[in-house]
Design a binder for these strands. Sequence first.
DNA 1: CGTTATTTGTTCGTATGTATC
DNA 2: TGATACATACGAACAAATAAC
Lengths: 265, 265
Amino acid sequence: MYATVPALHDDGMTVQMVAPAISLPEETERLWPLWLQVELTLRRAIRTGALKAGEQLPGEHQLAETLGIHRHTVRRAIESLTGQGLLEIRRGRGTFVAAGPISYRLGGRSRFTDNMEAAGKIPSARVLRSQTLTATEDVAANLALGSGDKVVMLEILRLGDAIPILIARHFVPEDLFPDFAERFADIDSITKTFASYGIVGYRRSVTRLAARRPTAQEAADLGQPRTAPVLVWASVNALPGGRCVNYDLSVFAAARVSIVIDDDG
Amino acid sequence: MYATVPALHDDGMTVQMVAPAISLPEETERLWPLWLQVELTLRRAIRTGALKAGEQLPGEHQLAETLGIHRHTVRRAIESLTGQGLLEIRRGRGTFVAAGPISYRLGGRSRFTDNMEAAGKIPSARVLRSQTLTATEDVAANLALGSGDKVVMLEILRLGDAIPILIARHFVPEDLFPDFAERFADIDSITKTFASYGIVGYRRSVTRLAARRPTAQEAADLGQPRTAPVLVWASVNALPGGRCVNYDLSVFAAARVSIVIDDDG
DNA sequence: CGTTATTTGTTCGTATGTATC
DNA sequence: TGATACATACGAACAAATAAC
């Protein structure tokens, strides 16, 4: 039923006509719920350029009045589009058209800073939390540890042009890297921190992917709505001998990136 | 602030106590919105096993009355958990605790049927749509076609134990494979359909990933709520010479799978 | 620096439609 | 056919964040 087809970050709704302003389609039939019609209308306005990236939408009250519907109905549509990464809500300020996603190269030896530079954005980072804790089942299994073993967790927020892109959670065995977090704070690079322990040449050996909705905490850290999905990338890095050195969990703000997987391993 | 740490499909909320029944925490403070408290309460009930997979929740009215709050507030919490894949709503029947995700191996030569069998599920497939259309920018670029070129789109729903797992969209140049959809209908295998044209030994050359919320159509096809994310996997298959033979777009019901990426390319 | 207006966020109220059993 | 349960929509009020004055 598509006249055009969904791309990765697109939903593939057909653009049939240009909306002269934000207005609902004719009242001929009501096959779709009102809020969905509002969603489609707004999306079309964004697609056609009637609403440009960064532009502020009319307020909820005003939009509701313009369309002759209730504010809740408008809110539902906006909430949905926010979850799809098309709109961005700033409480107390307004609702804005969001910028498109950037390509993020994952795998091989490419790093966050390289990716940001390739996208023309200024990379930055902030340590969110660091903690020593007992490995959960998931972590223990991936690091080949026994239950009850301690691990160091280092959680880093990485940003491009001051916009959060991902949360990187690094888990390392505490017995091997007792002061990992402290060293990282000085060195400011994961690779170099490992090198300071004499660990070089580790490779990604297993990798897992999932998409879900974020935790309240993750949503807050990433500055994204709870309705917008995150893309979770789990990878285990091991030495050539097979010894696992770290388990990484990257939580991407899915609306802000499209991930490109390298072939070079 | 974690006492335990989020796994891929987990949100990492701390389990601090076992809920004897579904009841809100003490009214000591209201740092979080009511609906989020309900969400956390329900999630804890699922986590701890007070609510088991497949079990039916009390109705919205009853839950609202039990908790002493409005039905809409309960609804919002349930909607949120539905989007996270923890609950499953069946209209007119009730709300149920959803089953956990299965591992899906992607890459290399592993196929859908292999994955389902590995998960102990019976694979099946259904052709949703097939259509010849003008390549969109996205499709044309990935197939190395000119603008205006025609492509055949074949959209297949793939299920495990009768539960939709993914929508596979295959795009092939029409000039090379004019009756691709018809042949597939007879042969029932993508690989063998290509083989019937003499095309064998193609390899994945580029691959892209994204997560977003589904289209209304995709949500309906996958039988999942619109609030639950989908994981989109785009890949281009090319012959050793470099000629692109097809562009695939897989839309996974993210709550139902955890994707494992093979190293063997 | 506090006040006020604007804008989004949450909650309860009420009514009606639709799917399932 | 009726009962049950979820879906949609409008209404009203207040809370909370932000910006401008």
